[in-house]
């Protein structure tokens, strides 16, 4: 094959309900590499795309939460396997998008794989750590257990296009939530490719829906949507946080605020992000003969 073969470029689309549609608005925006060169046209999601993604997430959430914790753990582990399998592709994407060298990009992709493995292991342990049997003063059996909050809207980190994204999505889904994720605006491409990995890794369609485009445009739609139960504002710029928090109050959404200082996503996480998107349910039953 000759060296001057014309390459076949990839079209980057949204991921909604296990399918890869273009934005219903027909709009795209130019994604540039860290060095300013043209990388691709990404879909620019509209408010209608947000609503479609929420519908898909709601539809998927019940079944995903009903899967056994063991099964969810295996599915998240399978994502790690698939990501590892396509390591070279992601290293290239992170290298181009984030402007780091191949070695650093490789370390970031490895960390993303390891992060998925870490969270996969939590699936069938979080209820033991966050749940309890409560010794009430009376003849009752009483226990508390964590349940997924439901549909979580996530603004992925802006800088860390793959590791950051994985680090906010994995803790939300491993407990049984479904998500609508807005990828990094300037660095969306590793996220779109990750969505293609998810589609081939046993994760039910609709558990992770990925939108690309302008957070200023789609963020308020997601924050105000009454069928979204919680928000992770991780990647939301400071000037937009107050507005989104105000909109979230309309349906008493749980809100995880952006970190006070920039995070180093390579650091080992805590269970905090998982526990932000679970509800504690307490059940009482009398004890007697």
């Amino acid at each position: 094959m000759s060296d001057d073969r014309i390459g076949v470029r990839k079209t980057y689309k949204l991921a909604i309900g296990g399918a890869f549609p273009r934005s219903e608005s027909g709009r795209t925006y130019v994604v540039r590499a860290a060095d300013g060169g043209f990388l691709a046209n990404a879909a620019r999601a509209s408010r209608k795309d947000v609503r479609d993604a929420v519908v898909a997430a709601r539809k998927a959430q019940v079944g995903w939460a009903a899967a056994t914790a063991y099964n969810r753990g295996q599915v998240v582990y399978r994502i790690a396997e698939m990501l590892e399998d396509r390591r070279a592709q992601f290293v290239e994407a992170v290298e181009a998008g984030e402007g780091v060298d191949a070695r650093a990009a490789g370390a970031l992709v490895d960390a993303a794989v390891d992060r998925l493995v870490w969270y996969a292991g939590w699936a069938d342990k979080v209820a033991q750590v966050a749940g309890s049997s409560n010794p009430v003063a009376g003849p009752y059996f009483n226990f508390s257990l964590p349940e997924p909050t439901g549909v979580v809207g996530i603004a992925a980190p802006q800088e860390s296009s793959l590791l950051g994204l994985v680090s906010v999505v994995a803790p939300a889904i491993v407990t049984g939530n479904a998500t609508v994720v807005v990828a990094s605006e300037l660095r969306p491409l590793p996220g779109v490719t990750l969505a293609e990995v998810l589609a081939t890794s046993d994760l039910p369609g609709g558990v992770v829906n990925l939108l690309t485009g302008s957070l200023v445009e789609v963020g308020p739609v997601l924050a105000a949507h009454r069928d979204v139960d919680a928000l992770d504002l991780c990647g939301v710029p400071a000037e937009l946080v107050t507005e989104l928090e105000q909109l979230a109050a309309g349906s008493v959404k749980r809100v995880l605020r952006p970190p006070a200082a920039a995070l180093d996503w390579r650091e080992r996480p805590t269970p905090h992000r998982m526990l932000a998107f679970v509800e504690t349910k307490t059940v009482w039953h009398p004890v007697g003969v």
């Binding site: 409560n134 010794p135 009430v136 009482w284 039953h285």
Partner: peptide
């Protein structure tokens, strides 16, 4: 809070 075969029970140990 789900009460089964009881209702309106409260206890300091119970979330």
């Amino acid at each position: 809070v789900v009460w089964a075969n009881t209702f309106n029970r409260f206890d300091p140990t119970s979330p």
